[in-house]
Amino acid sequence: MKLINVMTSLVLMFAISACSLFDKQHQDDEHVGVEVEDKSISTQAQTQFKPRIPPQHQDQADTLAYQDQNNLTMGQLESNLQNQSDYTDQHQHQNISSVSQSDLDPFSDDQNNPLSDKIIYFDYNSDQIASEYQTIIQYHGQYLLDNPQAMIELEGHTDERGSREFNIGLGERRAQSVYQSLLLQGVSPNQIQMISYGEEMPAVDGHDESAWKLNRRVVIVYIN
C-alpha cells in the first residue's frame, strides 16, 4: 500500500513537473499567479509576425528609391524583395475597377491576390497614409463593400521609440487614419474594429531604422 502511494506520488510529480513551467500557480502561499488563456489566436494572427515588404507602386523612380532603402534591411528580407517585384509586375497593369473582387479570398496569402497585401507603413511619429498605400486600402474597401458580412480589425502599431502608453495612442491614430479612409469609400463602420498595440508587438526585432520602419504599421486583419 505504501509502495502504491509512493508510485502515485511519483507519477503525480512528473505530471506536475511537466506542466509546472506553464501552470506554476498556487505554489506559494504569499503570491498567486494567473494564466491568461487567449481565445483570440487565429491563423490570421500569424501574418503579423512575417515581415512583409511595403509594395512598390507604379512610379519607377520611387521604386528604385524604395529598393535603395532596403539595402539597409536585414538579409532575411532580401528574398521577399525578389518575390515582391514579381508581384508588382503582374499588378502594374491592373486597374482596380477592372478586377472582379467577388472571387477574391482575403484569407489567402497568394501573392497574386491583391488582398494578400494587408499592411500600411507609416513615417516616424506620423499617422499620414502615403499615397502608395491608397491602392491597398481601395482593394480592401471594395471587398468590404462587396461583402457586407466581412469584418476587419485594424491593428495599429508603432516602433519602439518613445514611451509605451503614448505609442498606444499613436498606434490608434494610425488605425483611425485607415478607418477614415475606408469610410470615405463608403464602407460601413460596423465592418471595422480597431485596436492599438503600440510598440508591444513588433513585426521585426531590432533597434534601428531598418526594423523600425517595418514596425510602424497598420495591419488589416479579417476576422470573418
Binding site: 505504501k2 509512493v6 506520488s9 503525480l12 510529480m13 509546472s20 513551467l21 505554489q27
Partner: peptide, 20 residues
C-alpha cells in the same frame, strides 16, 4: 492516499523553487 497528496504538495514546492 492522504500521504501521497501531502508528498505531491511538497514536490510542487520543489519544482516551484527550481523554476524560480
Amino acid at each position: 492516499m492522504f500521504l501521497s497528496q501531502k508528498l505531491s504538495v511538497v514536490i510542487i514546492g520543489l519544482f516551484w523553487m527550481v523554476f524560480v
